[in-house]
Design a protein around this nucleic acid. Structure first.
Length: 263
DNA sequence: ATGGTTGGCGCCCAA
């Protein structure tokens, strides 16, 4: 038996319910973790999502910005939220089957990679540090943990179209890359994207809206990730990150990243 | 050389 888990920055869930339906039809994820839902809880489109087969849903949203959700075909046994740095709705956790699934939306960090002049960049780095501390304090390395999300950082050289040209661009600076790798290393997470796609090969999950033809130069970045703790290592079955979804009608700038896991 | 586009909301902000 196999379970498919997707993570997707959908950039407004209400605007893209038709894309969610198409994802279910063509890829049949059992669980979908969404970021940037951009909707307050009272307006979350529960009924439409239930009709797609996701009858177990948890969400944490706010007006205009941020917002996360977990949609599941399987029962959710428990849920909770973590607030790091401030009250932004950037995390939700669901206990499904024998694992705990954490869905994060790490702050984008603004344009200027300098904490002295850009408070958004400072917030991003603080958020990373507090994530690391939370797992060290609250979870054991042999717990069954899955961490997914739009982590807004491309840690490896081939996670961006040009590591040299992006070395001072927020999402690929040294301090961000090290901050993300520290969380991976401290908790001994497995980066499933790079378990199945060799680090010598380019792998992207995001292409800017600002390039009219995203395929022409293929200037992508790998900002979306699925990590698993060590006890789940032998259950990994493969990943899917279909770039063609970037071409669907009125797309998000991110495509879903999916993991298949034995259950 | 410092663009370019999108979404939500409301006459700009964040990504």
């Amino acid at each position: 038996m196999n379970i498919r888990i997707a993570t997707w920055n959908i950039n407004s869930v209400r605007l893209r319910l038709d894309l969610l339906a198409r994802l279910e039809k063509e890829f049949q994820p059992d669980i979908i973790c969404l970021q940037e839902t951009k909707v307050q809880d009272e307006f979350f489109p529960n009924d439409e999502i239930s009709k797609l087969g996701y009858r177990h849903v948890v969400y944490s949203g706010e007006k205009s910005y941020n917002g996360v959700a977990i949609l599941s075909k399987q029962p959710i046994r428990d849920k909770f939220e973590i607030y790091l740095c401030n009250n932004d709705k950037r995390h939700i956790c669901a206990k499904i089957g024998d694992f705990e699934l954490h869905n994060f939306y790490i702050p984008a960090g603004g344009d200027e990679p300098d904490i002295e002049i850009n408070p958004k960049f400072k917030h991003k780095l603080n958020y990373l540090r507090e994530m690391d501390e939370w797992f060290a304090k609250n979870r054991l390395k042999n717990d069954k943990v899955i961490l997914v999300g739009d982590l807004n950082i491309a840690p490896l050289e081939n996670d961006v179209w040009s590591s040299k040209q992006l070395k001072n661009v927020v999402s690929h600076t040294q301090v961000e890359r090290e901050g993300l790798m520290k969380i991976i290393n401290d908790f001994e997470f497995i980066d499933t994207g790079r378990k199945f796609v060799d680090p010598s090969t380019k792998l992207y999950s995001w292409w800017s809206y600002r390039n009219k033809d995203w395929k022409k130069h293929n200037r992508g970045r790998r900002l979306d990730h699925i990590w698993v703790s060590k006890p789940l290592k032998l259950r990994l079955n493969g990943i899917t990150c279909p770039p063609e979804i970037r071409d669907w009608d009125r797309p998000s700038d991110h495509v879903p990243f999916m993991l298949d896991l034995k259950i």
